[in-house]
Simulated assay, not measured.
Amino acid sequence: MSETRTRKPGTPGKFSRWMQVRAGARAVRKIRGGRARMMGMDMLVLNTVGKRSGQPRETALTWFPDGDDGWLIVASGGGSQNPDWYANMMARPERVSVEMPGREAVPVTPRRLDGGELDTAWQRIAEAQPRYAKYQSKSDRRYPVVRLTRR
């Protein structure tokens, strides 16, 4: 008799996680090659360092402009929990950088938004990409929004 493991709703299984890793690696290659749009959204590569492992990590993410010097990213993580990149970034904020299409990495400082800043940023994000608002409405938690600025 095999043991069945249960996982939180919205938490990817092994196959889903494998597909996410493969798709993420492909997206990173495309961004580095100068192509940076997915489903009508701009993409960047977020470079972090593993919270526990200390190993370099790279994640392709959508982003939204925030003034002349900032980028907004959303830590949706499949709905039920914050993504690993978010935990890594917040644990080692001094080791975070971003790569825009075909450009070198730029060191950035991440700052989680809250209060009125979060509300304003979320409104802009939801207007730019209504799918984020729809996705958020299906989750029991509020997605963190992080502002990245050049360091």
Rank of each mutant, 00 (worst) to 15 (best):
S76E: 02
T59G: 00
R35K: 15
F64L: 11
W85H: 05
F64C: 04
P107C: 06
R111W: 02
A36G: 15
R52I: 00
P56H: 04
P107E: 02
M89Q: 03
V106C: 06
Y86M: 11
M38C: 02
G78F: 08
V45K: 08
V74N: 04
P110L: 07
R92Y: 08
P93A: 03
L113C: 09
G102V: 12
V106T: 14
G102C: 08
M89E: 01
M89W: 10
R112L: 12
V96C: 11
L113I: 11
A105C: 03
R57D: 04
R92V: 00
V98D: 04
E104G: 06
M89P: 09
V49E: 09
V45Y: 10
W63I: 01
A60E: 05
M89H: 08
E104S: 13
P93L: 01
R95H: 13
D84E: 08
G78Q: 08
F64W: 15
G50Y: 09
R92N: 10
R111C: 05
M89Y: 08
N88V: 01
R37E: 13
D68Q: 14
D69P: 02
R35Q: 14
V74R: 03
W71K: 09
E99F: 13
M90R: 13
M43Y: 10
L61I: 14
N88M: 08
W71H: 11
M43Q: 15
W71E: 01
A36Y: 13
M38S: 12
P107T: 02
R52T: 07
E99N: 02
P93C: 01
L46C: 05
D42K: 12
E99I: 11
R92T: 00
S97H: 01
G50E: 10
P110R: 11
S53I: 02
A87C: 00
R111Q: 13
T109N: 07
N47G: 13
Y86C: 11
V106L: 15
Q81G: 13
D84C: 03
M41P: 00
R92F: 13
A91L: 05
G77N: 07
M90A: 07
G40A: 02
P110T: 02
M41R: 14
G70V: 01
Q81K: 14
R35M: 07
D66N: 14
V106K: 05
T62L: 13
R52G: 03
R37M: 06
G50M: 06
A60W: 07
W71F: 14
N82L: 04
E58K: 05
L61S: 07
L44K: 03
M90D: 08
P110W: 08
G79C: 08
R37G: 00
N82I: 00
N88I: 00
W71D: 01
